[in-house]
Amino acid sequence: MPTQNAGDLIRHWRISRRLSQLELAGRAETSARHLSFIETGRATPSRQMILHLAEHLEIPLRERNRVLLAAGYAPVYAEPALDTPQMQPVRSALRQILTGHEPVPALAVDSAWNMVEANTAVDLFLEGIPADLLAPPVNALRLSLHPDGMASRIVNLAEWRGHLFERLHRQIEISGSADLAALHRELRAYPGGEQPPGLPEPEQAVVPLRLRHNGTELTFLSAMTVFGTPMNVTVAELAIESFFPADPATARFLRERAESGR
């Protein structure tokens, strides 16, 4: 978004949410005329009005701060680093949740899909990955689709690529992130993109991850978890992805692997 004008930013998010001025004004219980004045710069919105409109537009907390700054107000939502003392309870909660998932692989990622925490079961996915792809920050999507990463072991690579690209596309639409758009372009350039992304069968409820491991095919279903009512940017952008066994054979493999200490 090239502009720093608050009205233009609000207009950008309204259009991205496919709302007319009349529809947004109705939801926000204001007049379409006043909203038009805000978007064109003829009226300066109050801090409360910006937050009110941002709530109805479901603007990410990071971008709400940007709109506030553009209007001349101080940011409302803090962005503390995960390694600061105030975020220790969150970090501890992440570790507890991830450990509780074992023997199911689970990892926590930030808004750019960089891993911030992972449980020991994730080692299953990292076997044979070269050191350069495991150098921090480890990007979970890059790790999945890079030809030197997990891609060579994913049985349904075209289908899984299509699933990840669709998920990333939705995230870009919601966040407006230029960094995610750049990541999307990078991933699409990886080998395996010659064929169109695989599509699930019409009756298929979710897209599985089918992974080759030492001659065995394991099947997982992934699920994303986020923190409810986050009050700062850092927590709002955290997500936990869990890979649950999709069949008894995979469940048995994970259980026996954990029991053997591998």
Rank of each mutant, 00 (worst) to 15 (best):
P2H: 15
Q4M: 12
N5S: 15
N5Q: 14
D8T: 14
R18W: 09
Q21D: 06
L22T: 15
G26R: 10
E29W: 10
R33N: 04
L35M: 11
S36C: 10
T40C: 10
G41K: 11
P45F: 01
Q48A: 07
H52I: 11
H56M: 10
L57P: 01
P60V: 01
P60K: 02
R66K: 07
L68A: 10
L68N: 06
A74S: 13
L82Q: 02
T84A: 13
T84Q: 14
P85A: 07
V90D: 09
V90K: 10
R91I: 05
A93C: 15
L94M: 11
R95W: 11
L98V: 07
H101T: 15
L107T: 00
A112D: 08
W113D: 00
V116S: 03
A121Q: 02
A121I: 02
V122D: 00
L126H: 05
G128V: 09
A135E: 14
P137A: 03
V138I: 00
V138T: 01
S144C: 04
H146R: 09
M150R: 04
A151I: 06
S152I: 11
R153Y: 07
N156Q: 02
E159G: 12
R161Q: 03
G162N: 04
R167W: 09
H169G: 07
R170P: 02
Q171H: 02
I172L: 01
E173C: 11
E173G: 14
I174A: 15
D179W: 04
R185Y: 01
R188V: 14
A189Q: 04
Y190M: 07
G192T: 05
P196K: 10
L199F: 13
P202T: 11
V206H: 12
V207A: 05
L211Q: 03
H213N: 04
L218Q: 04
F220R: 04
L221R: 15
M224K: 15
T225D: 01
G228Y: 07
G228I: 11
T229N: 15
E237F: 02
R252N: 09
F253K: 09
E259S: 12
E259V: 08
G261Y: 00
